[in-house]
Each structure stands twice: as structure tokens, then as C-alpha cells.
Design a protein around this nucleic acid. Structure first.
Lengths: 196, 196
DNA sequence: GTGGATATTGAACGCTGTTCAATATGGGGA
DNA sequence: TCCCCATATTGAACAGCGTTCAATATCCAC
């Protein structure tokens, strides 16, 4: 068709990422394909590769958006509920519930062999860790190493609960008791490490 | 080539599953392909489809083997260490470390849309749950509902720790402190729920 | 020895990510 | 106003994917 100039590169980026997110939420990230995206935005495959290096880069950018989205929700929840970890756990489950496919991709997508995780992604994750560990610090007698370890454990634990509950792989762990498990986990663990 | 009769169907099954496991451990399950398996075993693709319904079925059978393997290790560990949960946690991490790609597939592979998780897979998982919750029961004052919930939490938590540590996605949660996190988690949580 | 049963093949189909020469067009200069 | 060139856009091409199935080559019973 030749030159069209309907959209700037920035607009195309946004179109592509929005389309990718739509497809992922509808069909899962394994079903995402370059041709589907291009069809969705009314361009052909080639255009995607003018705007992004490849599909991997598109997925990374979508993950970055999901991550920032999650971080924003976490910060809001912490201020609203005065750094309550049980409340944060609920918030985390809610995020997984309403963004299951995107959250799934965020944590399960693995780089093609040879490629390295981009530093900005690590940085964003580290920032989120800092947000949580700071909120946790007062509860744990301002013991910083303990707060960091607890953050890791809480994070990994909530990740496990959400993954297993929402994937439906463990019949015993069903969605309805995700909240109940998370509550038992957060309260039990925080209570336990204060004793030890 | 026509009829060859080098191997019985059972032998072919074993050849295929062994080859699949080899490829998965080397390259990850996303890189598994029918043509790679067939090349590995010295047959052509068509033969795979005489023995198994499709690639999905092969993956499920590999997962079943991994699951049984894990269950065996768990049972052995529980008897060797007198139902110690911290020891079981170590055992679980070790299993993930030495079978990372297979464990990864076991927990992350999701069925093609429309297909349902086979009942025998659910059954095997439930059996493993029972093994752990039975071992946990005496520690928790023979409170069965509590033991079941605790098993779910411990399971999900260990799953999260292993996933995040071994995928290397969280720079803060590194492999070296997987054991340390797991220990804090198991001891802290079990101590905590006895208090609450 | 021969014929039928069947294990094995491999080409074919429609999908995938990615590349890149060809092309059609918007906009600046004359 | 017209034209030309820079370039945004295209779509055919390639290799690889899962899956199917008609053709085939071989084994085994008779």
C-alpha cells in the first residue's frame, strides 16, 4: 500500500501493545501471534517489525505495563489500609483474578535462549520489593534483614497461592479458598517469625 | 520403509517418553517438538502418532512420570526424617534443582483450550497431598481441617519459592537463599498457626 | 512361496516468527 | 501546480511447527 502516515510510531506502539493485551487476555499468551496483532490493528505483519524488534520485545513491553499496573495497585492499597499485609494479600489475589492471563505471562514467560532479561525489568521488580519491605519494616521491629527475607517469603508464597489456585491445577486448592489460604499464610507466617 | 517391528508399542512408548524427557531437560519444554523426538528415536513423525494421540498426550505422560518421581522422593524423605517439614522443604527444592525443566513443565504447562485435565493426573496430585497432610497431622494436634489448609499453604508457598528462585526472575530471591527462605517459611508458618 | 495384515513413511496443509525487496504514497522544493 | 524522492507499508518467501493419511515396504501365517 505504500506510505500511509495514519499513525505516528508512538501511536503504532500503543495500538500494538493494546491489541496484544486484548488477545492475551482473551486467548492466553501462548496464542499470541504477530499476524493476529497486525490483523487486529489493521496493518500487516511487516509493520510490527518496523515498530518493535520482534514479538519477544512486544511481550516484554506488555509485561512492563502489567508490572507498573500491579505496583500502582499495591502502593494504593498500602496507603489505604495502613500497610496491612492481609489486606495487601487480598489486593494481590484480586489483581491476579482480574488480570489472570497478563499476570500469568508476567511470571511465566521465559526469554528465548541466549537473550537476557532487560535491566529495566529487574529494576521495576526491585522497586516493588522495596515498596513492600518498607511497609513491612515497622511490624518487624525495624529489623531490615528480617523484613527483606519476609518480603521474599510473602511474595513467593502469594505467587504460589495465586498460581496454583487460578490455574485450577490443584483440585484441593480451589479459587474460593484462595483468600482463606492467603490469610492463613500471611497471618501465620508473620506471627511465626516474630516468635522465633 | 514399511513394517520394521524393531520395537513393540510399549518399547516405542518408553523410547518416546525418554527422548522427550531428554529434550525437555536440555532445551525446555517450549522447544520440544514432534520432529525432534522422532529424530532422537530414529523414527519419523508419523510413528509418534501411532503410539500417542498427539504431542499433548506425550507431555501429559512425561508429567505423570515426573509427578510419581516426586511423590516417591517425598515419601522416602518423610520416613527418613520422621515427618520433618523443614527437611521436606529441602527435599522439594532439591527436586526442583535437579529436575528444573521437567518440574517447570509439570506446573506450568497448560492444556490446549477445550481439552480437560485428565482425572488420573488430579488423582495423583491428590494422593501426594494426602501423603503430606497425613505427615503433618500429628504436629497440628490432629486437627484435620487445619492440616489440610496448612498442606495447601505449604505446598503453594514452596511452589512459589522454587518457581521464583529457580527462574531467576527476582534478583533479590536468588538460588543461594532458596533454602534459607524455605526454612523461614516452613518454621515461621507452622509456628504461627499453632499460636493463632 | 505368496498374500494379506500392518508398521512405517513422508508429502501435504495450515499455522508460526521473521526478513526484505518491491511498491505506493505524502510532502517538500521548483 | 507538479513532480520527485524519502519512506511507510506491504506481502511473498523461508524455515519450522503439529497433525493427517494415502502409499508403501515388510513381516508372518498359511
Amino acid at each position: 500500500m505504500g506510505r500511509r502516515n495514519d499513525h505516528s510510531i508512538e501511536q503504532l506502539q500503543e495500538l500494538i501493545l493494546k491489541a496484544a493485551e486484548k488477545i492475551i487476555e482473551q486467548e492466553g499468551y501462548q496464542k499470541l501471534s504477530a499476524r493476529k496483532i497486525s490483523q487486529e490493528i489493521g496493518y500487516t505483519v511487516g509493520t510490527l517489525y518496523n515498530v518493535f524488534k520482534n514479538l519477544n520485545e512486544i511481550i516484554l513491553k506488555v509485561n512492563a505495563r502489567t508490572l507498573i499496573n500491579l505496583h500502582t495497585k499495591i502502593k494504593l492499597n498500602l496507603t489505604q489500609h495502613h500497610n496491612s499485609m492481609p489486606e495487601l494479600a487480598k489486593c494481590y489475589i484480586d489483581f491476579w483474578k482480574s488480570n489472570f492471563q497478563l499476570a500469568n505471562m508476567l511470571f511465566n514467560y521465559s526469554m528465548p535462549k541466549g537473550e537476557e532479561f532487560p535491566p529495566w525489568a529487574q529494576l521495576e521488580i526491585d522497586k516493588m520489593f522495596l515498596t513492600v519491605s518498607s511497609a513491612l519494616l515497622p511490624t518487624l521491629k525495624n529489623n531490615l534483614p528480617l523484613a527483606q527475607k519476609a518480603t521474599s517469603v510473602l511474595w513467593a508464597g502469594m505467587h504460589g497461592i495465586c498460581t496454583l489456585c487460578l490455574s485450577g491445577k490443584m483440585s484441593i486448592i480451589s479459587l474460593e479458598n484462595a483468600y482463606s489460604l492467603a490469610d492463613s499464610f500471611v497471618r501465620g507466617y508473620l506471627d511465626g517469625i516474630l516468635d522465633l
